[in-house]
Design a protein around this nucleic acid. Structure first.
Length: 608
RNA sequence: GCCCUUGUAGUUCAAUGGAUAGAACGAAAGUUUCCUAAACUUUUGAUUCGGGUUCGAUUCCCGGCGAGGGUACCA
């Protein structure tokens, strides 16, 4: 049992013994003592004043004295205002470290065979353009989340819904058909997803030009309302858009030529995506395609219509009335019978729960979809999916540029592949400048460079609270110093180096000398205390679905260890016990760094 | 208009209702005969405003101001 939990239980007993009163366990949570005070763990006694009927100081003193007398792990205590600071004995800390050291997967729970099944949907790209920084955030969060949920003892299914059909895909298809002249990724030497993306942009360019010709000559002079209706009119007259719509209808009818074109173009995109996914180190257990699920959704919507859950308008469109739930009316099928985003999600949900015994469903989707998932939850519930109400929308914030939001159609996106290349290039440049990898073979060095470059990117994104919007400045490259991935990786590399040297000396990493009565430093205790917390941090990250907790935790650990590494010697320590102890401490820190970073999907190198 | 999210040093990020609000970057100054200086040590500097609840509020509640997102045939 961890010392903080042990103390909390003892404190309960203390309060019972002193004041003959039972209090809630949650009220006696010990917290870490602030650096500027003497002690390891602190109990805030204010909540007990009503029970003790004395001053905060006296209450703290009474509890402190009782704990000192009745708990051998407590070596001393002091009281400042209403804060009871407890010191734990060195031997107890050393025992804690031994326990952490002996557990190869400290803090990580392996899922049992009958553990709950959690399905996590993430990535969910459209097949009309390459991935950008926003997708990167999604993928990294989804992947990290899957690791964390699994480490909390759940069975996890990682899934991806590929939006491989729809009006946006038809735009790329039409543009390629009209202006592609038979070009292919192979012929042009372009990555498939970028190749397709170019046609999407091309369509938009031509479409905008066409709209311009359709607007009235006095357009600029109209008021806002007038401009809007003029624009709507022009859009309805667009030949290009009419062709796209026709293409979508043909696609839905299963027109052979269109389907063949569609399959060919999507296969190019998938090749490109696979490469990006591989570079990001993300993967999926099961991939769904919208083209295979949207009909299920349509069916389900029509079923709901028959049951009177939904209603249709004169033009044939189908709607859900959500006003009783405090929301609006929601379109489920267009008047031409084609499906929308919502239709597809209903179908996908249905297929997933047919395929798997899912206990919990988590959707990793940006916060711009908050309303969508609120509605989806209600609709699934209405359609009789008992899990509908409980779906979790892991809603993360947008990645913004200093100039504002990224817009793919305006070309203000940070491309995922470019960014990855840039990060690796920076890592290469840095390690060349420092001359760190000269003794290694090219392939070894290149692998480390990749680990560092990708690590910097991943950590940069994952250390930020997922719910918040974050800013990325493309002008300033992502840092390699300070609170960064490479900072942590570097500490790990140094740890591995020390342990290699210890091994060469023939040192065994284990405490073999009697440690009773030995005193260790406050810095060392502080590190053990942080190591011990890993268990709780993993739990909390799982409970809150918050990978940034892990990232910030590992940073704190490394920061503390670096200070220790600077101020204390490990291999040159003459005292036999201390040397053994510090080696165990060092190895344990390395292990927790590796496990913690592993949860984030970040590799750590043995040298760098 | 209505709904949701958000506001912390110059910048990017932290802080289960707890003590003097932490880091990093930037700027300035230091540390290498010693386990990897991608490190370590100083200095600098912040809770949008006004109320309320509380022994105690960056945190919870109400209001103002600012930012972002959503709001019936884009996904």
């Amino acid at each position: 049992m961890n010392i903080d939990v042990l103390l909390a239980n003892k404190a309960l007993q203390a309060i019972k013994a002193l004041y003959n009163h039972d209090v809630d366990f949650a009220q006696v949570q010990f917290q870490k003592t602030k650096k500027e005070f003497e002690g390891h763990l602190t109990l805030v006694v204010f909540p007990f004043l009503k029970i003790s009927r004395t001053s905060p100081e006296q209450t703290a003193k009474d509890i402190g004295a009782w704990l000192l007398a009745n708990e051998p792990a407590v070596s001393s205590y002091n009281v400042i205002k209403g804060f009871l600071n407890i010191m734990i004995s060195s031997s107890n800390w050393i025992e804690t470290l031994s326990r952490i050291c002996s557990d190869q997967n400290f803090g990580i729970n392996k899922p049992e065979d009958n553990a709950p099944v959690v399905m996590i949907e993430y990535s969910s790209p459209n097949t009309n353009k390459p991935l950008h920084l926003g997708h990167v955030r999604n993928n990294l969060l989804g992947n990290a989340l899957a690791n964390i949920v699994k480490a909390n003892g759940n069975r996890v299914i990682k899934t991806n819904i590929v939006n491989d059909r729809g009006i946006h895909i038809c735009k790329s298809m039409l543009a390629w058909q009209k202006w592609g002249n038979g070009a292919t990724p192979e012929l042009t030497g372009k990555k498939g997803d970028h190749f397709i993306g170019d046609y999407y942009v091309e369509f938009d360019k031509r479409y905008k030009a066409e709209i311009k010709t359709l607007l009235p000559s006095n357009y600029e002079l109209l008021d806002e309302k007038g401009q809007a209706s003029a624009l709507a009119l022009a859009e309805s007259q667009s030949v290009l858009m009419a062709e796209v719509r026709e293409m979508l209808i043909k696609w839905e009818r299963g027109d052979t030529d269109i389907r063949m074109l569609w399959e060919k173009m999507n296969s190019w995109v998938y090749e490109g995506f696979d490469e990006t996914y591989k570079n990001l180190g993300v993967s999926f257990d099961k991939i769904y395609y919208e083209s295979e699920t949207y009909l299920e959704g349509k069916e389900k919507v029509l079923e709901g219509l028959n049951k009177g859950l939904f209603y249709s308008k004169d033009d044939g469109s189908v709607w859900a009335d959500l006003t009783l739930d405090g929301l609006d009316h929601k379109l489920l099928l267009r008047s031409d019978g084609t499906s929308v985003y919502m239709t597809q999600d209903i179908g996908t949900a249905k297929m997933r729960f047919q395929d798997f015994q899912i206990d919990k469903m988590i959707y990793v989707v940006g916060n711009e979809q908050n309303y969508h998932f609120q509605v989806l939850s209600i609709l699934l519930d209405r359609l009789g999916f008992e899990w509908g109400k409980d779906l979790v929308h892991f809603s993360y914030g947008m990645v913004e540029l200093p100039s504002g939001k990224m817009k793919s159609r305006e070309g203000t996106v940070v491309d995922a592949d470019d960014l990855i290349d840039e990060m690796i290039a920076t890592a290469r440049k840095t390690s060349q400048e420092l001359g760190k990898l000269e003794s290694l073979s090219d392939s070894q060095a290149e692998n480390i460079i990749r680990i560092v470059g990708i690590g910097a990117l991943k950590y940069f994104i994952l250390k930020v609270d997922a719910r918040k919007n974050m800013t990325f400045n493309p002008q300033e490259s992502i840092d390699f110093n300070g609170n960064t991935g490479p900072f942590i990786q570097y500490a790990y590399a140094r740890i591995r180096s020390v342990l290699r040297k210890a091994l060469e000396e023939g040192c065994e990493v284990a405490i073999k000398v009697d440690y009773q009565g030995v005193e260790i430093s406050e810095k060392e205790i502080s590190i053990i205390q942080i190591l011990m917390d890993f268990e709780q941090v993993v739990k909390q990250a799982g409970k809150e679905l918050n990978p940034s907790l892990i990232a910030n935790y590992v940073y704190d650990l490394v920061k503390e260890f670096n200070q220790f590494y600077h101020d204390y010697t490990i291999l040159h320590e003459p005292d036999k016990f201390l040397k053994q102890f510090r080696l165990v401490l060092t190895e344990s820190v390395g292990k927790i760094i590796r496990l913690g970073m592993g949860l984030l999907g970040i590799e750590v190198p043995d040298r760098m």
